[in-house]
Amino acid sequence: MRIAIASGKGGTGKTTLATNLAVAVSRQGRSAAYLDCDVEEPNGHLFLKPALAERTPVAIPVPRVIEQACEQCGQCGAICQYSAIVCLGQKVLVYPELCHGCGGCALACPCQAIIEVPREIGVVERGQAGPVQFVHGLLNVGEAQSPPVIKAVRAAAPDVDWLVIDAPPGTSCPVITAVLNSDFVVLVTEPTPFGLNDLILAVETVRQLELPFGVVINRADVGDGRVVDYCAAEQIPVLLEIPDDRRIAEAYSRGELVIDAVPETQAAFEQLQARLEESLLPHRTGEP
């Protein structure tokens, strides 16, 4: 099963949950993989410390104009929605960093004067972290578009019992790209006004995607009770509540797995695993 760990607000504990869940299920004898789809700021490797074995560049196709063939008709500039190719009098200018790689200009060009060349925007790395298979992506610094790198991370997912997807924060295209085609989304939040506000946005997002989801409340004893009230009113299952514990914060700060540093949390991750299995079984039996 493919479990995406997401949140509207950053810093609520997505990576803590995703890395520890992947390790916890692998210790139960299941095959597990961890996919870090926060390609702008990936952190999973700091906790899982994988031996990276493979590195694959991620590129998007961008236009290159063959000047001898170009008749300056302007069709390329007319089709481009991103101002990435502009026809100015005798000259066609290409702004590769604005290009989304749709290929429209090459198709629209009546002179076959445009070829497409790959432009590297990031990299996908694969490796092994103990029993957990590890994949993450890195967007090159200065690049704006993370979704192609996230797609490449998702495409590199191995075939395992448990695929744990660590999503970036927010509610826009990078998050959507990370959680699409997952079987269940876990939304991690904290019981504060900011946590609640961003949880509501995240809930609206996963509802739009028609994905089943549940909530994990981290640092459950700080803040107020409004997140719990909201989940009850919306009939959203609260899968797990993790108390605020300085030992967890300190282990996190040092890049340690919480299930190793604070052993009693093992039971919490087993509970989460059981809740997820319960949530997914009815969906599974419903399939042909």
């Binding site: 702008e40 700021e41 610094v141 578009q145 927010g170 890049g255």
Partner: peptide
């Protein structure tokens, strides 16, 4: 600004006079 280093962050910093990065003492 927003978290990350992608499109909204680039749009929020280009041409600004000064950036303050708020970080925390964790490896992340």
């Amino acid at each position: 600004g927003s978290p990350g280093i992608g499109c909204p962050v680039i749009a929020s910093i280009t041409g600004a006079d000064l950036a303050l990065v708020v970080t925390e003492p964790t490896l992340s």
